[in-house]
Design a protein around this nucleic acid. Structure first.
Lengths: 119, 119
DNA sequence: TTGACGCATGCCGATATCGGCATATGATGA
DNA sequence: TCATCATATGCCGATATCGGCATGCGTCAA
């Protein structure tokens, strides 16, 4: 039945897949070329099962591809799935590039009120 | 001690904040201007407490700002926090725009393998 | 065939998430 | 002051997440 879901399945949503810092690191690393799981785990300081699990998530949302190479499984980047995210955030570009009526007033307000650095 | 965290705190990470579909909808809606909570909840078909909670997360990562207006609290967009996400994904742009050596090989490989093997 | 390697998966525990509901808090106006 | 509106928060239950560990399974080499 699955009436309620605590969160959109990480496995079906690129936004969710890249919400995990380690998974983002994997993607970055894979920009330099494909890697077998163990090597990847080693370079990122994670356990092999840990790497495998993250890779699975990435695979399921289509951000990586696997290629069998004998004993190994070479994981490679497939960044096409990141494009929608890029475009989605791009839809807000003008809101951070231009200074807006209300927005601008806010910003000035805040800059004065807080020092903005705290976090 | 908090040795292990099941996930990066949603409250400290913009990536995580926008991993939630409803929160993304809120951000989109707020592009057209600020809104009091109830109106926002109504327009997006969510309960008032639900809206408040999502707004809290968005506030804590700095994606929205609140302005007190008498009884109401007007929430407005602050898209600056989306810029890092845009840039991060942008770092993968050439991987989906250009056709790459290895990448290309993969694709060809897969096309062949599927035609032959047909799992 | 056997053993070692590479990897995936299953189970567990701790914790976080999300929605619903009730309720607390705060401002407004009669 | 008191009722009311607007919002925030607390608690709950169901579920998902993530890391660690053990183990299963396939591949290769001797």
């Amino acid at each position: 039945m699955m009436r309620r879901m605590a969160r959109a399945a990480t496995t079906s949503d690129v936004f969710n897949a890249i919400a995990e810092p380690q998974r983002r690191e994997i993607l970055i690393l894979l920009r330099t070329g494909e890697r077998p799981v163990t090597e990847l785990a080693q370079e990122l300081g994670m356990t092999q099962p840990g790497a495998s699990k993250h890779l699975r998530v990435l695979r399921e949302v289509g951000l990586v591809r696997v290629r069998e190479a004998g004993k190994q499984r070479l994981y490679g980047l497939d960044a096409r799935g990141l494009r929608p995210v890029h475009e989605w955030t791009g839809g807000f570009e003008r809101f951070w590039n231009e200074s807006f009526d209300r927005l601008d007033a806010y910003v000035q307000d805040l800059k004065q009120a807080r020092q903005e650095g705290s976090n």
